[in-house]
Write a protein that binds this DNA or RNA. Structure first.
Lengths: 259, 259
DNA sequence: ATAATGGGTGTATTTTTTACACTTATTACT
DNA sequence: AGTAATAAGTGTAAAAAATACACCCATTAT
């Protein structure tokens, strides 16, 4: 196919004038050989993290189409030609899983020549953090199935998604050391033990309960609620919520949240 | 031009078989509409940092071609269709400035629809750190001029390069807090005062001399040399060099280099 | 009533960070 | 040859942060 396209655009150049933009006149014309230019496919892949109270999970879809049909893969697809990158990430995730309006951050781009069997496709990976309670992932479009996976129980993934996922996890770990986590992954109201479990899951190490509380509470971005947890627990646990304003203020000052 | 290309590939799809790859047989065929696929241009932009002993500098080229002819810009150009991304960054930098074999890290991709006046071009930005002494940048290809610029003295840049540069500086600052800097930016042998000046330039704050030395020396990746600095200074300064092995060992253990 | 379970609390010790001022080796000048 | 000027170099005490550590509490299930 690469060759088909090459054939199609070979030798063709386009001379352009841009009347509408603000370039000086003599610069507004530019001759460009098509074959140098529009040679690339562009996709986005979303690494969707969730927390079930115990383990850090990642959302994968089972591909219903070739290539890599019936392999588990990160939710991802081609970007539309007239769509911004960040918007594409949101759209693709919604199309494939039904999850919308999600906190997302660009992680890295992957551009090996042969990473996609159909041609030269660059993919931009995004980390997404979601509250599992808020979303019921449902397979759509060409996804056969959608499911949360524990990081330690992954089989072979489609394309180079294993490498991409590893990078996403690495970035998440780096992030948790510099800014508070939980806004996005925990329920709006949560207990300190839930928060600690989350940190332990992400960092992959246990933390001292008293020291953790001292530190977190000392950062002053948690608000103690009147309510307590009423669930099946034994002693009811104090509920907290994040003080977004206070947090933004702190991050703006370059505050360090390292545990 | 967008329209010209649209015209060219409109309605065309390609059915493919991949005999050479390792996909199961029934997945090896895939029908793909061309207009969804090869719609994107891909470029790399290099943010080249250097240190002159006083200020942090960035290497810019003066564009000799439209668009943005005679604007200062980050060295960057289109990626070849059969070229890996990281390789492209090295090649582009060498083509435009003569600088080769450089330490580079991918920073971020920029993909706004309108960021390039000629069409949809995604760019992947790289941070490069170089020893100014080792390279004599010379303009080549379509570069009219190449020059080191101080960060505080920048005019308007081509494309969205101002945004890209800002991101690169931000990442450099974040990096200097987690791993030692200087391997790439300082001469092989250097004095502690040079190293301190570098840290101060990157972090944008002054540091206490005694505390800085205590900290840096305590990390044990500096080797005291027999030589002293013979230059025009007053009292001759002790020269040091980096112990690369020791440093790699530390980074591998997740050591924290924060000042 | 009681056993079981996860929730909650404080202090002493060690380590790290910070603040701070004078002496030394050289060059340039007279 | 003496002296002024300049950047290099050095240690300690006080404050802050990190760590280690063990028991009581409020509820549910039996």
């Amino acid at each position: 196919m690469r060759r088909d396209l090459d054939e199609l655009i070979k030798g063709k150049s386009v001379a352009l004038r841009f009347s509408e933009d603000n370039l000086p006149d003599e610069q507004a014309q530019y001759l460009i050989p098509l074959e140098d230019f529009f040679q690339f496919g562009l996709s986005v892949d979303c690494i969707v993290f969730g927390f079930d109270g115990q383990d850090l999970k990642v959302l994968l879809i089972k591909r219903g189409v070739a290539p890599y049909k019936s392999y588990w893969a990160l939710p991802g697809d081609l970007v539309y030609p007239h769509e911004d990158l960040d918007a594409a990430a949101q759209r693709v995730l919604e199309n494939l899983t039904g999850i919308s309006e999600v906190f997302m951050q660009q992680i890295k781009s992957f551009g090996k020549v042969d990473r996609h069997p159909l041609g030269r496709v660059l993919t931009v990976a995004y980390n997404a953090l979601i509250r599992v309670e808020n979303y019921e992932p449902r397979a759509a479009f060409w996804a056969d199935n959608v499911r949360w996976h524990t990081l330690s129980e992954l089989g072979e993934l489609a394309f180079d998604h294993h490498e991409i996922l590893a990078k996403g996890v690495e970035k998440l770990k780096a992030r948790v050391r510099n800014q508070p986590l939980g806004f996005e992954l925990l329920p709006v109201n949560f207990t300190l033990n839930q928060l600690q479990k989350l940190y332990e899951a992400v960092l992959g190490q246990t933390l001292d309960k008293r020291n953790f509380r001292k530190k977190i509470l000392g950062m002053n971005f948690l608000v103690k609620l009147d309510a307590k947890q009423t669930k099946d627990t034994r002693r009811p646990a104090q509920l907290y919520t994040f003080d977004r304003l206070r947090y933004d203020e702190l991050t703006h000052r370059g505050f360090n949240f390292e545990l």
